[in-house]
Design a binder for these strands. Sequence first.
DNA 1: ACTCCCAACCTATACCCATTAGGCATCTAC
DNA 2: GTAGATGCCTAATGGGTATAGGTTGGGAGT
Lengths: 194, 194
Amino acid sequence: MERVPLTSAAVVAAAAGLADEAGFEAVTLSAVARRLKVQAPSLYSHVKDREALLDGVAALALADLSQRIATAIAGRAGRDALDGFATAHREFAREAPGRWQSLQRRAGDTVVRSDAARRIVVLNKAVLRGYPIPEDQHVHAVRLLGATINGYLALERIGGFDHSHPSPDVSWRKTVQALDVLLTAWPADPGDPS
Amino acid sequence: MERVPLTSAAVVAAAAGLADEAGFEAVTLSAVARRLKVQAPSLYSHVKDREALLDGVAALALADLSQRIATAIAGRAGRDALDGFATAHREFAREAPGRWQSLQRRAGDTVVRSDAARRIVVLNKAVLRGYPIPEDQHVHAVRLLGATINGYLALERIGGFDHSHPSPDVSWRKTVQALDVLLTAWPADPGDPS
DNA sequence: ACTCCCAACCTATACCCATTAGGCATCTAC
DNA sequence: GTAGATGCCTAATGGGTATAGGTTGGGAGT
């Protein structure tokens, strides 16, 4: 069995794969080392510590997500773009649950300053492009979008919808519809007649 | 220093206190044992395992949250009730961050079947009472409410809003306003003219 | 009062984890 | 050839979870 030399990228990729298969909390240096058939201390040649490893997974995740979103909203505007955006998020959470979960923690500096993070910001604004939202309201709209979508996926993941009917798919469609309604008629600030 | 006899409730309360002070992830049997000045194995007389301990914290949290919500929406309807509801959530997340976090994981059976969980369901429906939402849409509205509010608090907690302006307080008010707009004019199903 | 049983604490242990320190082998540059 | 850097290893430390077995004190029964 030929052993491939380790690299930082290979270590992070192994961690990401493990996250998706066994859950984010199962990503330990020990588990990743076993997966790569080395001893755990050997990983410190490639990652600073466990925190840095998890940040590496998060950076991978963000890159993947931003790519999915870019593809999903390309050439689309308004409700179509919103649908694509929301669907990209949900499919990412489904297909790469461990990577999705890596994004639910406070991001380290390397993640915050990554190209993928910047791309996500751009894509968030792009979704709003087809809606009549004042520029000064964009940050609120982006935050509301992110909160609602991510919040929905988080509750779904922990079984928050398991104890009521109908299936989360139905409520998801209604949720995206509601977001479209909101973005289409963004509420004015109280006391602002426009 | 007189040592008070341990009880299951005391162990869970100590864990909850530790969660709020040091973070949910800091709640280990070892740390709780130190807090109570006993050895970790002694806790097994009172809790089955770590998972059960964490479920105990979640049950405490849910009871606290449901009480806060009940107080905040009592005698209120429509937008007032929604404001109280949302504020109760956010203040809970602020004042008891570790307990809040205990609710972000899949709940064990004891939590799902608790009185507090049932109370939360009732209170969720009570918030909708002042809004013209068809009965068959209540589950969607409750899920959207929970997703948006919880999602907002989660993103806020992990610093998701730290890299943009203005302060999350402003976006929070807009978010609650948006929820009110939605609940006031709940979007009809596509193809449903009413 | 005495005895027995049970509950609640303890220590010891096994196994897991993260991380550091030091060793060894290989490769590269001088 | 030699020295230094790199990348792996083992050993060790200190933290965690959970089980097994021991001790002590309290309560109940005779």
